[in-house]
């Protein structure tokens, strides 16, 4: 069943119950996001970037956790939205290793893309830096894993579990949380089947080809 929703003033006819973020992206409306993976059954909603306003709701909501229904009126930009997105973005940058010039994904990085589209500054340093300084895992013959760049979007964990060999998950708590193999053993010693899906989905140069 189809329904009509209004995003930023334009009417769109979509399938009822479809994920709002995907609809917007499919229609060329740019909503910044990092943790979104299409068709994930339970969106992580962890990057806190994809905020939109839905008429009738008191505060902006994450679009990745909303589904379309008839008559929905959505705005993808406002002062409140911007404030929330910038807060998350600046916080993410506070513990992301920023060395773009030597970064393997320089130019392809989604953080850079979001900064560009949203007019955020990568080097603003609004919050004190907290560098994790964790050693890179270079054990795998084809790709490296640099936890210091990880934004904990969880795409790799989802993709490795659903399509790969399921060697990745989150470990530790709080600011020390990181994507890790079981007990932190080197990637080469896990059952990794080298599907390279992690490299494909990583938005921030944490998993990258050698």
């Amino acid at each position: 069943m189809n329904c009509t929703i209004i995003i930023d003033g334009s009417e769109i006819s979509v399938k009822t119950g479809i994920n709002l973020l995907w609809v917007a992206l499919d229609h060329g409306i740019d909503i910044p996001n990092l943790c979104n993976v299409k068709d994930i059954p339970r969106p992580a909603a962890s990057c806190r970037l994809c905020y939109v306003e839905i008429k009738g709701r008191p505060e902006p909501v994450t679009s990745c956790t909303e589904t379309a229904h008839d008559g929905m009126v959505i705005a993808t930009d406002s002062v409140a939205i911007k404030r929330l997105r910038k807060f998350s973005f600046d916080l993410l940058l506070s513990h992301h290793q920023v060395n773009c010039s030597v970064c393997p994904v320089n130019g392809k990085c989604e953080l850079q893309r979001i900064a560009h589209s949203q007019h955020f500054k990568i080097l603003e340093r609004r919050f004190n830096r907290m560098d994790p300084s964790i050693e890179e895992d270079k054990s795998h013959p084809q790709f490296n894993y640099n936890p210091n760049k990880c934004v904990l979007c969880g795409r790799c964990v989802y993709i490795c579990t659903s399509k790969g060999s399921g060697v990745l998950d989150f470990a530790y708590h709080g600011i020390n949380t990181r994507v890790s193999t079981f007990a932190g053993i080197p990637l080469a010693k896990t059952g990794c089947n080298t599907c390279l899906e992690c490299v494909r989905v990583c938005p921030a140069g944490s998993f990258y080809l050698k």
Partner: peptide, 20 residues
């Protein structure tokens, strides 16, 4: 800070900032 699961950014990185 120690009990945050680390999933979402505000809690994971915001609480340490508050604490500092």
């Amino acid at each position: 800070r120690d009990e945050s699961c680390g999933k979402c950014v505000p809690c994971r990185a915001g609480i340490p900032k508050l604490l500092s």
